Amino acid sequence: MSLPFLSPRQVKIGDAAAFAGITPRAIRHYHAIGLLPEPERGSDGRRRYGYEDMIRLLWIRKMADVGIALDDIRAAFSAGQDGDDGIAAILERVEESLAEQEAQVRRRRAAVQRMRTEGSRMGLLSDFVTDRFRHLPEGSLRQADLDSLLVTERMLGPLGAAYQTDRFILLATHPELRAESDRITADEEALDDGVAVDDPRVARVAADWQAFEKTLEAAATEAGLYEDDDMLEAWDALHPPTADDGKREPGSMSLLEAVGKMPYDFSPARRRMYELIQQTY
Rank of each mutant, 00 (worst) to 15 (best):
A211N: 07
E180Q: 11
K214W: 12
D145A: 09
D147K: 14
R201L: 15
D166N: 07
G157L: 04
D199E: 00
D228L: 11
E222W: 02
A172R: 07
E213A: 13
L146W: 06
E222Y: 05
L150R: 10
H174D: 09
A234G: 15
V151S: 08
T215M: 11
G224M: 10
D166F: 08
I169V: 11
V205F: 05
S181R: 03
G157D: 02
D208N: 01
E189C: 15
A144Y: 12
I169K: 08
A179F: 12
L232G: 09
A190Y: 00
I169W: 08
D230S: 09
T130D: 05
L149N: 02
L159K: 11
L136E: 00
D236Y: 02
F133W: 05
A220V: 01
A220W: 02
L159F: 12
L156H: 10
R134W: 01
L177A: 06
R178E: 03
Q210S: 14
L141T: 03
L141M: 00
T215P: 04
R132M: 14
P200G: 03
G194Y: 05
V205G: 00
S181G: 03
G224K: 11
S181V: 00
A190K: 05
T173H: 01
A237P: 09
P137I: 15
L216M: 14
D208I: 05
L149C: 04
T215F: 10
L225M: 06
D198N: 06
L225H: 09
D230H: 11
A219W: 02
D228C: 15
P175L: 00
W209S: 10
Q164E: 12
L149I: 03
E227Y: 06
T185Q: 12
L149F: 04
L216K: 15
A144L: 10
D228E: 13
A179R: 14
T152C: 07
L159Y: 11
D229H: 07
A237R: 14
L216R: 13
A172V: 07
L159W: 10
R134V: 03
A206E: 03
Q210T: 15
A190M: 00
R167T: 12
A206G: 02
V202Y: 02
E138S: 12
Q210P: 08
T185R: 15
T165C: 08
D208C: 06
G139T: 12
A219C: 07
T165N: 04
E222S: 07
A203R: 04
E138N: 12
R183Q: 10
T185W: 11
R183K: 10
D229Q: 07
D236F: 05
W209F: 13
G224D: 12
L177H: 07
